[in-house]
Computed example of a mutant assay.
Amino acid sequence: MEFHRSDSSSSPCSSAATATPQAQSDPMHSWWESVSKARSRIHALAALLPSSSSSSLASLADSDRPALSLLSSPAAYDALSASLQGSHAAPLCHWLYDTFLSNDPHLRLVVLSFVPLLAGLYLSRLHSPDPPSLAGFEALLLALYAAETKSRNGKPLLVTIPDLSHPSIYHAPLRKPQSQSQSQSPSLGLISPPLEPQLGVKSTKRPTIVGVALHSFFSQISHMPAWSKLHFCQFAAAWAGANCPCRNDLDLDQTLPFDNVNILIRDDPQPQRIPLPWEILQPSLRILGHCLLGPLNSQDVKDAAAFAVRCLYARASHDLLPQAILATRSLIQLDVRAREAAKDNAASSNANTPTKVKKPEILLVSK
């Protein structure tokens, strides 16, 4: 399947060339252009979905911020995800592809919210005995990969590792800092090497391309809706293999509230265990870490993330992956401590709650 950019998703360079300088500097004009673009994309989506979902999408298009309304609509997400898991995946992938190329930041957030579902369906169907055509999924994954490659500009993703030999900025130094000539360079950890442009999804580059798409989702995870995070947790548990009994080895309390989290996907009643290279596992653990420890996440998201992390810990223990064992073990310990602290706070708040003193009963006796 070949995807071509539609007229509604023309590049910003061509639109900027035809726009006048006054229109470019007018914020009202840019706002109206963004709203018009979002409304046209929503109407195009309504034409692809069943008629039962068209009325709700029409109301979203009439709002002042149609793209953000679409992002925060669980009904629209359910309708699109149900069609993606059915037989109408190709035109919806085409719609997501054109919407992402529109370069509107809010519309791109809408596309990124479907990355967990796209990656989950793609990897699950890829390893099925009779995989269907996945050209639409791969075209969209390549678009996400190309955008991330352009934004990184040939540079790797690095992280500075704290060095205990240097005083922290939050503490008084116990000794005088070394001079500039004697100071050592900070320790750097490699998160992702520089990305190379890809024209197709080769088997050797598939984990990297999917991992970059998951990283794009993680980079905007604070804007993602709860149902998108929940979908990813369900897929992560399914990828790891959710039926291993050793997932609760680090839990003292074996009766966990999240042990019955539903991980079943609509078109895959028995989610299968798939290969998990580090290129996919690393961004997955970063997403699960946010879902598990993010203070604004709902309890359903935290429970699903806790279940998925324990499944990945069991998988890493069987596959003997030291990096994954260390990461998942740390997340489990943080989750256990957070749940114990929440339980202690709830118990102390109940103990400190003042109870009303009963008034003594007064019996009125008539003479």
Rank of each mutant, 00 (worst) to 15 (best):
V111H: 01
V110S: 03
R108K: 14
L121R: 13
L117S: 08
V111S: 03
S113L: 04
N103P: 02
S102I: 12
L101T: 14
A119M: 12
S113N: 03
P131R: 06
S124Q: 15
S113Q: 07
Y122W: 13
L109S: 10
S113K: 05
L107A: 03
L112Q: 10
R125N: 11
L118V: 15
P129M: 02
P132C: 05
V110E: 02
H127N: 09
P132R: 04
Y122A: 11
A119E: 10
R125H: 12
V115I: 14
L123Q: 15
H106I: 04
L117V: 10
P105I: 01
L109N: 09
P105G: 07
V115D: 03
Y122D: 11
V110H: 00
D130K: 13
L101I: 13
L107R: 00
L121I: 13
P116D: 07
H127I: 10
S128M: 01
L101R: 15
L117W: 01
G120V: 05
R125M: 13
S124W: 07
V110D: 03
L117M: 10
H127W: 06
G120T: 04
V111P: 00
H106W: 08
A119L: 03
P116S: 08
L118T: 10
P116C: 09
P116L: 07
R125E: 12
L126S: 14
L112I: 06
Y122C: 10
P131F: 06
N103D: 15
A119N: 12
H127P: 04
H127L: 05
P129C: 00
R125K: 13
P129S: 04
L109Q: 11
S128C: 08
P132Y: 06
R108L: 10
V110L: 00
L109K: 07
P129L: 02
V115A: 05
D104L: 02
L101E: 14
S124D: 12
S102L: 06
D104V: 05
P116H: 06
R108S: 09
P129T: 12
H106P: 03
N103K: 14
S102K: 05
V111F: 01
D104N: 08
V115S: 00
P129Y: 04
F114N: 01
L126V: 09
P131S: 07
L101M: 14
H106D: 15
A119Y: 07
D104P: 00
V111T: 11
S113G: 10
V110N: 01
S102W: 01
P132E: 10
S102Y: 03
S124E: 13
P129K: 02
S128W: 01
L107T: 09
L126I: 07
P129I: 07
S124L: 10
L123H: 04
P132H: 06
L107V: 04
F114H: 12
L123P: 05
V110W: 00
P132V: 11
P131E: 08
L126Q: 14
L107Q: 02
P105T: 11
L101Q: 13
D130E: 14
P129R: 03
P131M: 08
G120K: 01
L112R: 09
H127G: 04
V115E: 04
L118P: 04
L112G: 02
V115H: 02
S128Q: 05
A119T: 15
R125Q: 14
L118H: 02
P132N: 03
R108E: 15
P105W: 01
L121E: 15
L112W: 07
S128E: 08
S113W: 02
P105V: 06
D130V: 13
L123D: 11
H106R: 09
L101N: 15
